[in-house]
């Protein structure tokens, strides 16, 4: 097991804009970073919630989209070779004898570092679960919020809920395997790619699957086995759809997750920090960006950038206790310019 442990200077939880800028600031000080994020991509809310929406309040960038900001930050921190561990959640944390931290993710990645930085925004993105009585009893046996192995759905009577790309993609991929396929969506208009929608409509026209316009109102089954789903149709009627598998894709929501139980002082799901180094009540664990709170805190990306820079000064002392840090500018320091690879 020990050979699988990754040792680094800083583990950053959250690969959003503030986490990425922390990589840059840490890099200037010679610190290496690993990042953990539950999304399948880099960029946090900027990439997941509003990649195409404009941002106007980044200093010296009068206008950019969420995705452009992420792309710029990636380019800026690239010389420091950050390592990303995506599709996994920071799960548990433990202090080692030498004072550093061991963090284990939901995928079993083990990371050790003197500094842990929580840059988790509003928490990690997790699928929205169906808020109906009994839904949790079916979860992972006949109700799923993600598809890991397609084969497990062969021969099943599948109901897919949702109107986005995830819903339509899985309808198209699983329909050939399924005993029957039904898609339920609240209106006859889909945000998924037009090409997928067209393919789905063709299957419906050919009688290979059904499309029901309406909303799920109740689940029925026995033990952990779903047997049917009640749907209130948009036309005002009620329909019962027999199915043994429900795949629900209602998008993602953000929740603090396991971090809530790490012993950090919280104020309404935000992590309390001091404002010199943005360290939490637990030495060596920092919190920056939207997830941290202190008197006067503003949830702005630019505030997160500032917090990242100050945090790195303290993190440096933890990572390099025997070295002295000299404050330099990228404009004039050949040392920093060498680190950036520009000379």
């Amino acid at each position: 097991m020990s050979e699988d442990v990754i040792k680094t200077d800083m583990v950053i939880i959250g690969a959003g804009p503030v986490g990425l800028f922390a990589v840059f600031e840490a890099g200037l000080l010679g610190l290496k970073c690993h990042l953990v994020d539950n999304l399948d991509k880099i960029g946090g809310q900027c990439a997941e919630l509003y990649p195409e929406k404009p941002i106007f309040d980044i200093p010296a960038i009068p206008r950019c989209t969420g995705q452009e900001l992420v792309d710029g930050l990636m380019e800026q921190c690239k010389p420091f070779e950050p390592v990303f561990h995506l599709n996994q959640q920071a799960e548990s944390i433990e202090r080692l004898d030498d004072g550093s931290w061991r963090l284990v993710t939901s995928e079993g990645t083990v990371l050790e570092a003197p500094a842990i930085v929580v840059a988790a925004g509003a928490g990690s993105f997790v699928p929205r679960r169906i808020p109906l009585p009994g839904a949790e009893t079916y979860e992972n046996s006949s109700l799923f919020y993600a598809v890991r192995k397609m084969e497990q759905f062969r021969g099943k009577h599948i109901l897919v809920a949702g109107g986005g790309d995830s819903a339509l993609d899985w309808v198209l991929s699983l329909q050939p395997l399924a005993a029957s396929m039904t898609l339920v969506h609240r209106r006859d208009d889909f945000r998924a790619a037009p090409d997928s929608v067209e393919k789905m409509r063709r299957l419906v026209a050919e009688g290979q699957m059904r499309l029901v316009i309406g909303q799920i109102t109740a689940l029925a089954g026995r033990d952990a086995q779903l047997e049917s789903v009640d749907i209130k149709t948009a036309a005002g009627g009620q329909e019962e759809v027999d199915c043994d598998t429900l795949l629900a894709f209602y998008g993602l929501k953000m929740e603090l997750g396991p971090i809530a139980s790490w012993g950090l002082n919280l104020d309404r799901n935000l992590i309390e920090v001091e404002t010199e180094a943005f360290e939490t009540n637990v030495p060596g664990i920092f919190a920056i960006g939207d997830i941290c709170t202190y008197p006067g805190k503003l949830k702005l990306i630019l505030s997160g950038f500032h917090e990242a820079a100050l945090m790195c000064q303290k993190a440096f002392k933890l990572c390099r206790p025997d070295e002295k840090l000299v404050f330099r500018y990228t404009t004039s320091s050949t040392d920093l310019q060498k680190k950036l690879g520009v000379i």
Binding site: P131, G164, Q215
Partner: peptide, 11 residues
């Protein structure tokens, strides 16, 4: 707005 309401429940 309609597209985002698709992600809500009990609409």
């Amino acid at each position: 707005e309609n597209m985002m309401l698709d992600e809500a429940f009990q609409v």
